[in-house]
Amino acid sequence: MKKIVPRLSLLACVFGAFACSPDAQAYLGGFEEQDGYRIPLNGQIVSGSFAGDAQFYFNNNPGSGYTGVVPWGAYPNTFSDGTNGPDVTRYNAGQFGTNNGGPGGAAADIGDNTGLWQAMSGGRLNEDADAPYYYGGQFTRDSIVAYRNTTPHGGSQTLNLMAMDENLSYRYSLDSRDLGGINPASTLGAAIQMSFWVKPTDWDDPDTGNLFGLSLMDAANQPVFEIGYTGDNFLQYRLTGGAWQTTAYQMGSAGYSEITVLLDTFNNTASLDISAYNDNSSLLGGDTSVLSQQALGVVSGALTGLQWDLRGGSLDNGAVSYIHSFDDFNFAVTPVPEPGGVVLVVLGAVLLGMPRRRR
Rank of each mutant, 00 (worst) to 15 (best):
Q293F: 13
D309E: 12
G286P: 05
G286H: 04
Q294F: 06
L310T: 07
S292Q: 09
Q307A: 12
S292V: 04
Q293Y: 14
S314C: 00
V299N: 14
I323A: 12
N278E: 04
G301F: 10
S321W: 04
L306C: 07
L284N: 07
S281Q: 07
H324C: 03
Q294M: 12
I323S: 13
G305Y: 14
V299P: 01
W308Y: 15
N280S: 15
I274S: 00
S289F: 00
G285C: 01
G318S: 00
H324N: 13
A295T: 11
L291K: 03
V299F: 08
N278V: 00
N317M: 02
D273E: 12
Y322C: 02
G305R: 13
S282E: 10
V298M: 09
A319F: 04
W308V: 14
D309S: 09
V298T: 14
S282R: 13
L296C: 09
Q293W: 04
L303Q: 08
L283W: 00
T304M: 12
A295P: 15
L315F: 08
Q307G: 08
R311C: 03
D273H: 10
S314H: 03
D316S: 13
Q293L: 06
H324W: 15
T304N: 06
L291I: 09
G286L: 03
S292P: 01
Y277N: 06
R311T: 05
L315A: 03
A276C: 04
V299D: 13
S321H: 04
G301N: 11
H324Q: 08
D287H: 13
Y322D: 10
Y277T: 01
Y322Q: 06
I274M: 01
Y277E: 02
A295D: 13
Y277M: 03
G297E: 09
G285F: 02
G285N: 03
I323N: 15
L315R: 11
D279Y: 08
A302G: 09
V320F: 15
D279S: 08
T288S: 06
A295L: 08
T304C: 08
W308P: 00
S300E: 11
S282A: 10
Y277L: 01
S300M: 06
G305F: 11
L283S: 13
N278T: 05
G301K: 11
I274W: 01
N317K: 06
V290H: 09
S275C: 09
S282I: 00
S281R: 05
G305V: 12
D316R: 09
L306A: 07
T304E: 13
S289W: 00
L306E: 11
G301D: 07
Q307K: 13
D309M: 09
L283N: 12
G286K: 02
D316L: 07
L283A: 13
G301W: 14
D316C: 00
Y277S: 05
A295E: 12
A276I: 04
L310K: 14
V299E: 14
L296Q: 05
Y277H: 10
D273Y: 01
L303I: 15
D287A: 05
D287Q: 14
T288G: 00
L296G: 05
